[in-house]
Computed example of a mutant assay.
Amino acid sequence: MSDSHTMPVDNSAAKPPAMVVSARPVVLAAPGRGEELQVSVSAPATGSDLPVIVFSHGFGHSMNDYAPLANFWAAQGFVVLRPTHLDSRTLGLPADDPRTPRIWRFRIEDLTRVLDGLDVLEASVPGLGGRLDRSRIAVAGHSWGAQTASTLLGARVLDSVGVPGEDMSDPRIKAGVLLALTGLGDELTPFAVENFSFMRPSFDHMTAPALIVAGDHDQSALSTRGPDWFTDPYTYSPGSKSLLTLFGAEHSLGGINGYEAAATTDESPARVALIQRLTSAYLRSALNPGDLSWKAAATALEEDPAPLGQLQSK
């Protein structure tokens, strides 16, 4: 694989970080997509029965982004798979490309294709073969990527008269982390109504366990509501959900999309470190019944004399 490398990751966490190995691009055939699907694979260099996280990037990003999350999760024992969706700036699709109206569907299909291609992805990293635990798979995403990921957890898109569309949930997915996931579509701006018909979700059937992360300063140009819009996925979904509200966080949540990324308007290494710790602890516990990592992390946040955020659960 090109760009295959081994690197140490120095992050504080609940357990000592492992060395991470990664490979990109790993290419999956994608008939009907018009572009082969490129995926980045990051994994701990050692260990067996490794849980898997499939991550969906935000608008315009690619498999090269979100290193603060991918590196950390891999160092904590997860195999992290990051596909590049068709809206990525690295692909340069023009706005009038005939695929554009269906990119939201292509995105969902990309995640399913990653799950279907685990054999190929596993074989792409030397020494990774036979080390994945396919009974412990989670999905995660940021912004549009969170919307994409949410459909695999059971969220559905409403049609023009409010009828929920098809169920695109995937039984292979056991839990999720949804970062800055947009809310209900009843108060979209005229621009969003005209251009993003898929932004009319129903969370009524999003039954899989999930951690939803929202910033209390995240003011979207796509909704006439304020930052509380990003709490809708928690409010309107069934139980087995937790909501982490980050104080002072805007849409990049402190910089999860990349180190020193230009898109980060609210840079906060401390906030990113909190997201790293809490999401890792949540997924360990969600994918391992009886694991107390999430309980310990939630308790630590509650007892912090100067917390960066607050948690709710149901």
Rank of each mutant, 00 (worst) to 15 (best):
N257A: 08
E303Q: 11
F247H: 10
D228G: 08
T112I: 08
M199H: 04
V114T: 11
V161N: 15
H217K: 10
N64Q: 12
L121E: 12
Q147S: 06
H251A: 12
L50K: 06
V27N: 02
N11P: 00
D116T: 14
R277H: 14
M7F: 06
L152V: 03
P227V: 10
S202I: 08
S240Y: 04
L86R: 13
P238R: 13
P307R: 06
D3W: 04
M1A: 11
W294P: 07
T279L: 10
N11C: 07
N257C: 07
P190H: 10
S197N: 07
L153V: 02
K15D: 13
T46F: 13
H251Q: 14
D218I: 09
L278T: 15
T189E: 07
S42V: 03
S160N: 14
G162K: 07
L132D: 06
W144T: 05
F196I: 15
N11Q: 04
G58M: 02
W144P: 04
G130K: 09
E109V: 09
V114L: 09
F230T: 11
K314H: 14
L118T: 13
S169E: 00
V177R: 08
L283C: 15
A262Q: 15
E250V: 15
E267C: 01
P25N: 02
L243S: 08
V272R: 05
A155D: 02
V52H: 08
D291E: 10
P238F: 08
Q310N: 13
P17H: 01
W73Q: 01
A273W: 06
T148S: 11
M1E: 06
L121K: 15
V272Y: 02
N288E: 05
F230N: 10
L243G: 03
H5Q: 00
G254K: 02
S268A: 07
D232P: 01
R89F: 11
G258L: 02
K295D: 14
H251I: 15
G239I: 02
S252H: 07
P126Q: 13
L37P: 01
T299G: 07
V161R: 14
K314I: 13
Q38G: 08
T231Y: 13
A146S: 00
R134L: 14
D10C: 14
V163L: 08
D291F: 00
P269R: 09
A95M: 09
F72P: 05
D159S: 05
G92E: 11
D133N: 12
F203D: 12
M1I: 09
G60H: 14
V114M: 11
S240F: 03
R131G: 05
G32T: 05
T245S: 13
L153Q: 07
D266Q: 11
